[in-house]
Design a protein around this nucleic acid. Structure first.
Lengths: 205, 205, 205, 205
DNA sequence: TATGAATGAGTTTTCATTCAT
DNA sequence: TATGAATGAAAACTCATTCAT
């Protein structure tokens, strides 16, 4: 069993190494301009070895998404567990979203740019995974509405889309602008803006 | 001169016909799966003719963006000219953004999906054009801040990104979900949400 | 119409040139060891051009068969038309079969060796065409039986298979043995043997 | 020595098991479409194990031929030993040829189709083995000629080719046509036809 | 200006074979 | 002897682009 364990670990590790290499290469040259042999060289394996772990170049791309998203969803739930206030949960959610992207720029580029390639991908691959992402956000918003902290005029889904849109746009901007300034720092201002709106709040007497 | 005029007109019309065909084909099959000969057939011209109007397949894609964006920017400025209230201007801006996408679904698909292909494209082509888009929005926001209608806590640019992010996400969602419900109808709720925030507003006495 | 005629001719000629080149290359190196680019080079065209005339490497192989077989069937019918005696028809048929192979050794090699590759090919492609070949032979044999020149103890189909088997084996042998002696010369002895049998005929008194 | 003996036996058995598996796989999918790993799986061994018994995929193919042919040659000589009449020997030879193919359809497919792959194979591998086959047949015919039972007008070699061609064509036909009718039953009619010829024998007075 | 036949560069994927265990 | 993970060579086919007509 020791042996089995070790073999398993090695296999998973090798797969991960190839995935990291793929993210790096895709981020550098773009998915369509990248050759599988580039990925193999970057990972330090033979071309054919890539296909022992991933069915195709496409699967390489989608696996980057799947793997990172799976981990994100597990971790973000962990982070939210101890927080009671929905507003604070939203802040933490946004901050963690940005932290993950900032931690791995290659992956961020793949997420914000390369994954948006095709209608097919956007529809089939990511929909299933993104549903979970939106589900978590919706639950926070629903709880906020139940406690009369967040407006009930709009559906949680609608609000979630606006929040995601704002976060996503900021992330894309960070990726494209080669901005070295911290992305995470933008999380709170965005959430503040979305919470309070952009209307000037006049003093009330 | 009459002749020249007519030739010019014909040329522009022919170019537009090819562009419409390209949008249709790209929307249907995706940019990378579309062949130039597909576009030519759809436009009713020979393969080589496409190259009399556009330098490359890439230029076909970017011209769809450029042409539509040029028109959008001219028209949206027209629309804003007669409006004095920055808030009302924002609403009109958002509504018009959505109207344009809704009017031509092929183009909308190209805008929301196909144009996001490469870092290269996102950086080079669209940045120049998007700058104008953001400029207009920033001017509205700045005027709103000057009149103390909109919050001055955040930079106009920052706010503009959040607004654009929200609109863009909603548009992408509309495209992907094959939603037949009107996209334009979502403009006002989004702007309302962004103006007032999602915090519940308690009555004040 | 002049132009159309010329273009048509050119296209057919070009296709034939590629087919001849393919036969040469396949005969030299074998189908599976031949690259399409070898065929293209031999034909003096670009790799891609081959695919303007033939859908695939496989179609190149089957077209060699189809084209040659079509011509053979037409010509052999011509040759038989003026002959009344079924036995003489058989001789002419066999002789012409061998003449065609002898005239184009590349094609002969493809026919006798390369075309026997796969069950798939043997079943699908050639069956339809070979049916005609056997049909002609059967008609001769049937007529011979009707006139009581050929034995009626066996079905024409059975006899045709034996005749074809004998001719085919001799042809394969000629191809493999690099035999420069004329193949055509073997036609009459084979037919004689098949007509009279290999039993010694004792004088009858 | 017991052990050694057993090991030897096991090794030969294992080799035969792999050969049977190869014949099955080649017959099912064709030689070029078959993977060595398919053969290994069919034989219940690891991929690498195949190479402990056979040098290459090609050798797998030629070993099917060699092994079966060796056995055929030994057995057919056995069968002929007790027969004195050359004509009866011919019948027995033909019948046994067909019996062997009929007994193992996978091997028959390999013999009639897959082995005809390349000029190279036809020339090098099979020539050496086929020489023995033809040798046996030639000896029968020579004896027949010596006894004035068979015609001396033609060389034994020539007659042997015609006989083999007839048998081979019938076998190929049986394989291709998925014919379930017995192949062996065709042996005697073929030999009869070749002995007596297809000419109608008129009563002699 | 329009055509469309010809070009040929370019890449994913397969799979026979090896070899460390 | 057996395993099966790793290797890496090898080629069919596509399609953007050109250019002679």
């Amino acid at each position: 069993m020791e042996t089995l364990q070790r073999v398993e670990t090695t296999r998973a590790e090798r797969a991960l190494r190839i995935l990291k290499a793929a993210a790096k290469v895709f981020a550098r040259s773009g998915f369509f301009n990248s050759k599988v042999s580039d990925v193999a060289r970057e990972a330090g394996v033979a071309d054919g070895t890539v296909y022992l772990y991933f069915r195709s170049k496409d699967e390489l791309l989608s696996s980057i998404f799947t793997t990172a998203m799976d981990e994100f969803l597990i971790r973000v739930r962990d982070q939210l567990r101890d927080i009671d206030d929905p507003v604070e949960q939203l802040r933490r959610f946004a901050r963690y979203h940005f932290e993950c992207l900032e931690r791995d720029r290659d992956m961020a580029i793949v997420f914000q740019i390369e994954l948006r390639h095709s209608t097919k991908f956007m529809e089939q691959i990511s929909t299933a995974q993104l549903a979970d992402y939106f589900q978590i956000m919706c639950e926070i918003i629903e709880e906020g509405q139940r406690r009369h902290i967040l407006t009930s005029h709009l559906s949680p889904k609608f609000i979630a889309k606006v929040v995601f849109g704002a976060l996503d746009e900021m992330a894309t901007n960070w990726v494209i602008s080669h901005n070295n300034r911290t992305l995470t720092a933008a999380a709170d201002p965005i959430i503040d803006l979305l919470l309070n709106g952009m209307r000037e709040h006049h003093a009330i007497e």
